[in-house]
């Protein structure tokens, strides 16, 4: 298969920006950092596009970059929040207008609970339960083994269940 040349960067961006944005939004739960994230992902992708031999692997490759970049952002946000330099997010803001107040509240509660998880566990949980990815796909996206995915899911599930049962 022909490699994707640099001349195709615009096409790749236009075709996959919304996909990258969707993954980023679902993991972060907030829209305000989304533009930066998408740009960062494609800037990193731009450097490697010429080396990509299999165009069919493009989407999952972009997902891997997105997850890596999102984890960095989550860790940075957590540190900033620790020092009071980052405002807590109104997670309910990302809900569409058809969401009921209860659904908005549940979404916000779930994201606030996700804040307590290590970034890697949060990503795995969101990919599984929000994005609906298979364990194999998550392992590929997160560049780890399937058993690591399962372990992270179990830990995330346990923490979330504890956290949300207090509500």
């Amino acid at each position: 298969m022909a490699p994707v040349g640099p001349v195709d960067f615009d096409r790749v961006f236009r075709e996959h920006a919304a996909y990258v944005a969707a993954i980023g939004l679902k993991i972060m739960g907030r829209d305000d950092d989304l533009d930066d994230l998408v740009q960062e992902v494609f800037i990193e992708a731009h450097r490697g596009l010429r080396r990509l031999r299999d165009p069919g692997a493009l989407k999952s490759w972009l997902a891997r970059i997105t997850v890596r970049r999102t984890i960095r952002k989550l860790r940075r946000t957590r540190v900033l929040m620790l020092f009071g330099l980052e405002a807590p997010s109104d997670y309910a803001e990302i809900a569409d207008t058809s969401a009921t107040p209860d659904e908005r509240a549940q979404m916000a509660l779930a994201y606030r609970s996700l804040e307590r998880l290590p970034a890697a566990e949060r990503v795995v949980w969101v990919l599984r339960h929000v994005e609906g990815e298979s364990l194999d796909d998550i392992a590929q996206i997160c560049a780890c083994s399937k058993s690591t995915v399962q372990r992270r899911l179990r830990l995330a599930q346990k923490t979330l269940a504890q956290r949300m049962s207090h509500v």
Partner: peptide, 17 residues
Amino acid sequence: MSDPTSEGVEKAFRHIQ
């Protein structure tokens, strides 16, 4: 609300826009 993967939570996540 003890199960984070309960139907209610998953339904709420479907409203992410």
